[in-house]
Design a protein around this nucleic acid. Structure first.
Lengths: 241, 241
DNA sequence: CAAAACAATGTACAACGTACAAGGTCGTAC
DNA sequence: GTACGACCTTGTACGTTGTACATTGTTTTG
């Protein structure tokens, strides 16, 4: 039947419309469908989440999946919200705003590293879900005491989350090798590229080389991350007077 | 025949391998293929760029496209590099680093708003292209005089570009209405969502409502953008002591 | 003139999301 | 008790995608 997306997102809410008890009991629940989809995505990325595979994984036919989710796009929203709900939100304790904000950013980055497929879900309707809203509510509290009005507070949180996303995007490239391009690709194309480049763009060559080497060095894989985060936090601190 | 991606990216370079003069002259060039693909993407997004449509647009068959590009993924890299090459890079003049960096960020945001499909191209091999490298080289100069070492300079630029990307991502939602969710969707789902939410998460409801209203107001569509950019620039300034 | 190199094409395949119609199964109203 | 209607499940089928492969046609080179 496929209830509306909002009803599916809030399916655990007391007031959510339960399915009428008329026909045969469905063999799987929407929650189980979403859980199976999470399994697939966690193991092989979003590309692994096809309606057919999902059905096979659940022991039902491909088309039966549509009894529980409506469409694949809806499913992705349900998955993202479930991931947000399962994410362990950072504890704030009595820490100051800077520490709290850092924890928010770190937690989001960790989540995006663990579930890289979240980077590929780009659907606005995710904000309608209970998991996403609860996460939003909690993370907004990190800015308590910074003296931001509501609009600025939302913008600040968005800034932090976007930063985490960007960092996670970079981090999911070829794991070992630094230069954003894979090692084997670099070995194959580096020489040719060098021939084309010659002495042109010396600044780009120097900085790019240094950045690549730094990322390749085992020392600081997340150096750029720390740098960017502290810079953004510095920027936010300029607001607190 | 489809030369390697690097050779295709540098096809205008003097030393690039010209096609052997054996068979019949090809009816279109790689450059024309890329240009046609840019047309399609500019008008209807990346989804419009299918191999068949591209061929039809060029007056050749679908499979003939592969004579000039190798694969659709390669084509996307070529398109992104061409876009970077066509982008008008900000002039720096005698401006200070902060102004220069602001211009870099603004120029990138403008580019991403004009060619939103660039947000959907996520291929590391783009850095191999001449347009991308020239852009990188130019933008690195914005940080001259800030006292950053090479690694930090690369990280700072990445931070700025990621910021522009994030902002452009938000801006390409439903154009008119503020709340990231479209107007009609909000009208349909807002009430139901309110029923589920009730009095829960008052902070999220207040801040989210304020942020949505602010975005809906014609006053400050890019308010969040200015905010985030100045915050990041503040953060960078904490490096220049 | 023959051979090799190249461009262009048509056909075909596997995979995708999902519309549609049919069949099965249960609770409910008469 | 029986008929209705709601509900789950399924198979088949359509349109679309990227692209592998074999073939045909064209041009330069030996």
């Amino acid at each position: 039947m496929a209830r509306s997306l909002v009803d599916l997102l809030w399916r655990d809410h007391p007031e959510a419309p339960r399915g009428g008890s008329r026909g045969p009991e469905s063999r799987v629940s929407t929650g189980e469908v979403v859980a199976a989809a999470l399994d697939l995505a966690d193991s092989g990325g979003l590309a692994e989440v096809t309606v057919r595979r999902l059905g096979a994984h659940l022991g039902i036919s491909a088309m039966s999946v549509y009894t529980h989710v409506g469409s694949r796009d809806d499913l992705l929203v349900l998955m993202a919200d479930a991931a947000h709900a399962q994410m362990d939100l950072p504890a704030f304790g009595r820490a100051g705003w800077r520490t709290r904000c850092r924890r928010v950013a770190e937690a989001n980055r960790a989540q995006l590293l663990a579930r890289a497929w979240l980077l590929d879900v780009d659907d606005d309707r995710t904000v309608l879900g209970p998991g996403t809203i609860a996460k939003y509510d909690h993370e907004l509290q990190a800015f308590e005491g910074l003296g931001l009005d509501d609009v600025a507070r939302d913008a600040a949180l968005t800034l932090l989350l976007d930063l985490a996303r960007s960092s996670a995007r970079v981090a999911r490239r070829r794991p070992t090798t630094g230069t954003n391009v894979g090692a084997e690709e670099w070995a194959r194309w580096g020489p040719a590229l060098g021939r084309y480049l010659g002495d042109a763009h010396p600044l780009a060559q120097r900085v790019g080389g240094a950045a690549g080497a730094a990322m390749g060095a085992a020392s600081s894989p997340d150096h750029a991350w720390r740098f960017a985060l502290e810079r953004v936090l510095d920027g936010l601190s300029s607001l607190g007077r």
